[in-house]
Design a protein around this nucleic acid. Structure first.
Lengths: 194, 194
DNA sequence: CCATTTTTGGACTGGCAAGTCCAGAATTTC
DNA sequence: GAAATTCTGGACTTGCCAGTCCAAAAATGG
């Protein structure tokens, strides 16, 4: 599909408008007409830029949200080289999800797009990058001699990702950040002990 | 609502039939007519036993599935009093989810019922009981002198629940049990060190 | 057995929302 | 500046599916 500058702008307006809108409502019940209204576009435009229809649009929005997940953890996530930086990171993650409340835009979107093949790729990609950065942090600590080199950085990072993921899920279900906090604290303690 | 024995049997047939059916397909796309067909019931019956319609039926199925989650972890979950029992538990959880593959019946259902008030209660109740049992296990280990009494059992248990939850979520998304495994191993190691 | 209540079947409705279509405006391209 | 392409608006089609309704069959109970 050929896109002129104007077209690119419109497409972007749709994705961003939809993202903002979907952050405030259950994507499961949102209709294309809702999105049309809020982004001030016509049916023709929607299907012009997203020939695959609703699924394709939602997936584009999910991609957009996925990018934000890691960005919101910066600059901490890329500089996990001291104990202080790890707790700073912990605090920033907690703060982010606390303020977000029980709404997790990405998770809510993924619930809608489950079956499509592209959706798997979006999540896999995100988890992968996330885990890689944490692993890099573990390596940095090992190089600094603060953490035993017996630990497998990839494995520890996998546990971190899982723990955070689970904490957020509990947050979504119950509204409490206790689990997220307990999980991150336990894992950082684990590193300290090693 | 008054239920005769016959009525109770029918209601149960519907819930169980729907549960079995929904384990094999995406609950998001399943229609009442699908469930009708597979449970051999009529529209009249469905709405007779579930006046709240689809939501109420799905919620009943979710309750049914929630009960299974903890049952499937027995007898290990109730006897976390030695290191061997913890690893047995770990193995049973891993085995269960590995065989389930990327399908998590409960999670898939909850995605559908998110907004209703009863759904929150189902999850909260489940997580609560789960956490309580793990915490009991930690206490048992402390009483046996194998784990430091400095640890807050509730907090550790919360981390376990979060870690498992997250591991399962990653499994759903990527199909790999690596994260679940890494998470449980790390947490058990943490206990061992304490 | 008669009255009452529960259970069952299935035709029908109603509305919603995804997706189609096409005509006309804007823009690019040469 | 004319032809080709891209962009936009919105009316219309279409199918689906939750939920309604009622009549008749079974069970219950006195």
């Amino acid at each position: 599909m050929k896109l002129t500058p104007k077209g690119r702008a419109t497409r972007q307006r749709i994705v961003e408008g939809a993202a903002t809108y979907l952050r405030g409502t259950d994507p499961g019940t949102a209709t294309l007409d809702d999105i049309r209204t809020v982004t001030r576009t016509s049916k023709g435009q929607i299907f012009h830029y997203f020939p695959g229809g609703k699924d394709e649009l939602l997936l584009a929005v999910a991609r957009h949200e996925a990018d934000r997940v890691l960005l919101d953890q910066e600059p901490h996530l890329s500089r996990l080289d001291s104990w202080a930086s790890w707790t700073d990171w912990r605090d920033s993650v907690l703060a982010r999800y606390r303020s977000q409340g029980r709404r997790c835009p990405l998770a809510a979107l993924m619930d809608q797009v489950t079956t499509t093949p592209g959706s798997v790729e979006v999540v896999t990609e995100l988890l992968d990058q996330w885990q890689r950065r944490v692993a890099a942090g573990v390596v940095a600590m090992q190089e600094g001699g603060r953490v035993s080199t017996d630990l497998d950085p990839a494995r520890v990072a996998a546990a971190f990702v899982a723990g955070i993921q689970g904490g957020v899920q509990v947050l979504r279900a119950t509204g409490s950040t206790d689990h997220l906090e307990a999980s991150m604290d336990l894992m950082i303690d684990y590193l300290r002990a090693a």
